[in-house]
Design a protein around this nucleic acid. Structure first.
Length: 505
RNA sequence: GGGCCGCUAGCUCAACUGGCAGAGCAGCUGACUCUUAAUCAGCCGGUUACAGGUUCGAGUCCUGUGCGGCUCACCA
């Protein structure tokens, strides 16, 4: 750029004038006695007290969001993490020199101010400033006060501006924090131990998803970012922690959408001597517990829907749910080919590369999922969709697995964990065969064909014996979407993934 | 990756079938001792995302590129 932006240039000139007066525009610290919210509360207490008490001297600090000069007095609004308050400056109280220094101060600057509280003629609690300190000079103009920052791309790329200018944003991320706290509290109170397992893994297993690859220099070895928490948490069950959970970031190298970010947060919970029925109960209890903690009730609004979280939630068998909605009974089509033909008969466009499990998955997301607004468990999945789940006690074509849906969002996935090491090895191999067949087919698509390795270290662990175990995974981001009533995952992730923009300088 | 839509001043938005690129806020100068979207007067601010093309003339039409939104695919 040939010349500096006009406004920034003016601010730099102000900065020099400030320094020229011997004032440090970026001092090291400032002692504030109250937050703006505490100050407002304090003054209301003073007013309602029976004795006539005067406001004590306080010091407040924050970012200037509005400036209104009226000749020899001025009103500023400042905002801190708790809220905002109005400041009143007068020429008479501050003296000529200090009052004139106010003209070097801009919207966006951070200041500290000392004085006493009073109420203006129009009734607003205000600090009568008898001294102030510049704490940080701002060199960039803030978005407009009235409309705030609207440009979606800018809101995500410069989230700090979004937070500064759109007041309704902070509560969303406070809510996110509260949900995670409540979740921890629930699990800790139920006797679970929180653990941390590797993010960098030599074999990224536990789910079917494309991975991110990286390289460790000293080990001279490729590593992958984890796509699930599952296999390491099960190692801990084997090691004798009977109740473990991890809240952690998962990375999946797949498409980005309003429901998908490349990195997202999951909680996975494993309980020894439990099965998927126990985990179903746990999901109900856990979501209700969180609802009461963060919303104070178990009925919440999501989009147009009023969602009732009180247990018991509806339980439908996956097979019945699909049959009811589109008339296809996938058990009548025991192999890929017949199911594909059946789906084509129903007028569906069918991806020829999909295996039977993925075709069934497509039936779920097309016909079933969108209608699951009230909390619902889909139970009992076909074995080929779930390589880590244990077969049903009375039907070995199905596994003991459920997925929980609320508001049309897939929220949780759980099963009675497979603990037979011989069968687990067999299932891994079957899965890999399907995958490499698929890769052969897709090869023309130009994707790098790289079949997932089998986690031999996990299989070895299983061979030492894992107790019967119930496992549960819950997508935290979607849980937050639900409670925050947001239709896009980008609204509840502070810094959603965007493509890097080329710098224009 | 496919389809549809968008990109104009620091921010929020105008500009009719192609005809001089504008307003409000922010900024600067001045007035104003209870304002709060303060008010009043004046001023500054643009490679209309980028690169080509059509045309006497392009913010507007065409082609390509970039980034974003929605959606489909993939996935959770």
């Amino acid at each position: 750029m040939a010349r500096l932006k006009h406004i920034a240039q003016q601010r730099l000139e102000k900065l020099e004038r400030i320094r020229g007066q011997g004032v440090n525009p970026y001092p090291h610290s400032y002692h504030r006695s109250h937050t703006t919210q505490e100050a407002l509360t304090l003054y209301e207490q003073i007013e309602s007290s029976p004795q006539a008490i005067l406001s004590p001297e306080l010091s407040l600090a924050g970012r200037i969001t509005a400036i209104r000069f009226m000749g020899k007095i001025a009103f500023f609004d400042i905002r801190d993490g708790s809220g905002k308050i109005q400041l009143h400056f007068s020429h008479d109280l501050l003296g000529k020199k200090k009052y004139e220094f106010l003209h070097e101060i801009d919207i966006g600057d951070i200041i500290g101010a000392e004085g006493k509280l009073f109420r203006t003629k129009t009734g607003e609690i205000t600090l009568e400033v008898n001294d102030f300190t510049l704490l940080a000079k701002s060199l960039q103009p803030l978005p407009e006060k009235w409309h705030g920052l609207v440009d979606v791309e800018k809101r995500y790329r410069q989230r700090y501006l979004d937070l500064i200018s759109n007041e309704e944003l902070k509560p969303v991320f406070r809510l996110r924090s509260q949900i995670i706290s409540a979740l921890r509290l629930f699990l800790n109170e139920s006797g679970f131990i929180e653990v941390e397992t590797p993010v960098l893994q030599p074999v990224a297993g536990g789910a079917l998803a494309r991975r991110f690859k990286t390289h460790h220099q000293a080990l001279e070895q490729d590593l992958y970012l984890r796509i699930a928490l599952e296999l390491y948490l099960k190692r801990l069950i084997i090691g004798g922690f009977d109740k473990v959970y991890e809240i952690g970031r998962i990375f999946r190298n797949e498409g980005i959408s309003t429901r998908h970010n490349p990195e997202f947060t999951m909680v996975e919970i494993y309980q020894a001597y439990a099965d998927y029925n126990d985990m179903m109960k746990m999901v109900e209890d856990m979501v209700c517990y969180i609802a009461r903690e963060v919303a104070g009730k178990t009925e919440i609004k999501f989009g147009e829907e009023l969602v009732k979280l009180t247990p018991p939630w509806q339980r439908i068998s996956l097979r019945e749910a699909i049959k009811e909605r589109c008339g296809i009974d996938f058990e009548d089509c025991p192999d890929v080919k017949s199911l594909r033909v059946r789906m084509e008969q129903s007028g569906l466009e069918v991806d020829p590369n999909k295996d039977r499990g993925r075709l069934i998955d497509e039936l779920i997301s097309t016909f079933v999922q969108p209608s699951l607004m009230q909390p619902t468990f889909l139970v009992d999945y076909p074995v080929e969709m779930s390589p880590l789940a244990k077969r049903k006690r009375d039907n070995d074509r199905f596994v003991e697995r459920f997925e929980a849906f609320i508001g049309g969002l897939e929220l949780a996935n759980a099963f009675t964990e497979l603990n037979d090491p011989v069968e687990q090895r067999k299932r891994f191999h079957e899965q890999r065969e399907m995958q490499s067949a698929e890769l052969m087919l897709a090869k023309s698509g130009g994707k790098e064909p790289e079949a997932e390795a089998i986690d031999e270290d996990f299989l070895l662990a299983l061979e030492y014996g894992m107790p019967p175990t119930g496992g549960l995974g819950v997508g935290i981001d979607r849980l937050v979407m639900l409670f925050a009533d947001k239709q896009s995952i980008r609204e509840i992730i502070l810094f959603p993934q965007l493509k890097t923009k080329q710098q224009e300088s």
